[in-house]
Nucleic acid binder design. Structure first.
Lengths: 188, 188
DNA sequence: TCCCCTAACGTTAGTGACTAACATTAGGGG
DNA sequence: CCCCTAATGTTAGTCACTAACGTTAGGGGA
């Protein structure tokens, strides 16, 4: 009852994503209109917006937060930067590795457009808020927690963008490297 | 020759900024149209866009970078995070303190709208690029430099947003606190 | 002081993202 | 197999932003 036709919506959504990625790669994000995406997927423009809200939405479709928050909870040793980066390491280890090609494809598109790079950061705000909430619950003051969480999130985002753009190395390695630097230690 | 009527343009620009800030504060950023800003300033809508390019542009009007880059140059001791935060401390000390009320007014507006928070980060990309350039020139690899610069810039941005939103403390103190946390050390 | 040149501004006509209100269809559950 | 409702369609807008071209105002050189 509450969710009849579940698969039809999912099919449309999947078709829209595929078509959108193709068009973004071929013509660039700016030169692709939402109308053309909808047309190529065989639906109306409204349907696109019902599924993704914004044109950028089709590129930012994650649900990671809970694992990260869980891995940070209770961790109370060392400076905030370390606690967050260590937590993210642990969360990453416990999560199933996502389809690397798929991820790279999306981030590569994001890397090419300033508007999208900003959007990526905006998208991480949700995760950032969750991290801040947990740190405050563990006794940190809100200001420090916010600054530390924002630092790490943006550091990681920057690392992912560099990875997707310069296409060297594996996702896992680059992520670990970014976490090391963002944690305050250098490598080499 | 090359710049007749310099003062007329500056006057218009100044009028637009004042009026825009007033309207943003009164009605919110989203509910203020560029048309209404232009009308209230007594010019056409086109003139607004000629001066600021985008609706957000009127809020992001800085020129800080050179001092920061200069303060980072040559600094080669310690991890990247420290070198950047220490450099920013030094740059801040050498620069004339900006009009605090003016700054707070703008950032307070930015803090209230997600779209603008993202825009603030996008706006710092220019400074971030400059910092990365200097670090690479000083021998760092590009990946680490990018991650570290992004971390610090976003940490600072987050700190400024918290400061303007919760209106406690002085700009200088909050900035220093943010730099401490973003540098990898905690306070208290 | 008085033109004159050009920066600054205006007008018009458009594109494209996004929204609201209401009508229609398709497909799974009873 | 029909019915109910999620999913989609239609229409008609608003608003940020752009391009091309026409108009004015005000400061510098005579």
């Amino acid at each position: 009852m509450t969710q009849a036709n579940r698969s039809r919506a999912e099919a449309t959504r999947h078709r829209l994503t595929e078509v959108a990625l193709d068009l973004f790669e071929r013509d660039g994000f700016d030169r692709t209109t939402t109308a053309s995406i909808a047309a190529a997927a065989g639906v109306s423009e409204m349907t696109f917006f019902r599924h993704f809200g914004t044109k950028q939405g089709v590129l930012f479709d994650d649900p990671y937060d809970p694992a990260i928050v869980h891995a940070i909870a209770g961790r109370r040793e060392g400076p905030l930067l370390r606690r967050i980066t260590e937590g993210m390491r642990q969360a990453w280890a416990e999560l199933p590795e996502p389809a690397e090609a798929q991820v790279r494809r999306r981030i590569a598109i994001v890397a090419t457009t300033p508007e999208l790079r900003a959007g990526m950061r905006a998208n991480m705000e949700r995760t950032e808020d969750a991290v801040v909430g947990q740190l405050v619950a563990d006794g940190s003051n809100a200001f420090d927690a916010r600054v530390a969480a924002a630092s790490v999130m943006s550091g990681v985002a920057a690392g992912l963008l560099e990875w997707a753009a310069s296409s060297d190395g594996r996702l896992h390695d680059r992520l670990m490297a970014a976490l090391t630097v963002a944690g305050g230690a250098d490598r080499d």
